[in-house]
Each structure stands twice: as C-alpha cells, then as structure tokens.
C-alpha cells in the first residue's frame, strides 16, 4: 500500500509467536503497513479483516496486544523485541480482545 521515501533500519519483533522484521523508528501501525502486514487483525464481532484507519488514535482499528496489554499501534513506536499478538476474538467465543 505504502512505500518509504528513504531507507529504514529494521527491528525484530515476535508476532503470534513467529519472528518478524519491521522497519524501525516509526509507529507500530506504520511499520505493519510498510511491511505489508495487512490485515493487522480481525474484528471481534464478525471476524472481518481490519487495519489502521485514522493513524491518530481515534478509530482503535489498530489495537494489538503488545507485551500483554492491548494498545493502539499508531500511538506507540515499534521497539526491538516487542511481543505482539493480533486481536481476533470471534463471535462464537464472545471475546472482545
């Protein structure tokens, strides 16, 4: 979807237990988009694919579990070693995570 105007260093994170390289120095949501990691997650009600929409903290579509706590990926910088889990509760288990 997007490309960089200049080159970026990389950091390594874990996503759902697997290692992933993401561009450094930018927000976690920007890094996901730059790395082509979309959809970022799935909605809790119908499990439909979602990705960051507003990038400024309003829409909460980029919420992801970062080191055990749900956070808006557009509001935090990507950091080496982050342990990430995609949201993805489904309607049948009633999960809101």
């Amino acid at each position: 979807m997007f490309r960089f105007l200049d080159t970026n260093a990389q950091v390594e994170v874990t996503l759902d237990g697997e290692s992933l390289d993401l561009p450094a120095g930018i927000s976690l949501a920007a890094a996901f988009i730059a790395a082509g990691q979309t959809p970022m997650g799935h909605s809790p009600v119908s499990h439909s694919p979602r990705t960051a929409y507003c990038m400024m903290g309003s829409c909460f579509e980029c919420v992801i579990e970062v080191d055990g706590v749900n956070q808006r990926a557009c509001q935090i910088e990507v950091v080496q070693g982050m342990c990430l889990r995609r949201p993805g509760g489904t309607a049948d288990n009633g999960s809101q995570s």
Binding site: P23, A30, P49, Y53, C54, M55, M56
Partner: peptide, 24 residues
C-alpha cells in the same frame, strides 16, 4: 469502508510526516 486499504487522508498525512511513507 472498513476494508484494510481504506484509510483517511489524515492517516496518509501522518504516514508522510511521521514515517516518510507515501502510497505506491
């Protein structure tokens, strides 16, 4: 409008200013 790949123009600007990212 909820599909990944639909974003706001403001989001495009945030990506430009804060991450030097532009659309393909």
């Amino acid at each position: 409008w909820q599909l990944p790949g639909v974003m706001t123009a403001g989001a495009g600007q945030v990506l430009l200013k804060s991450a030097a990212m532009v659309p393909e």
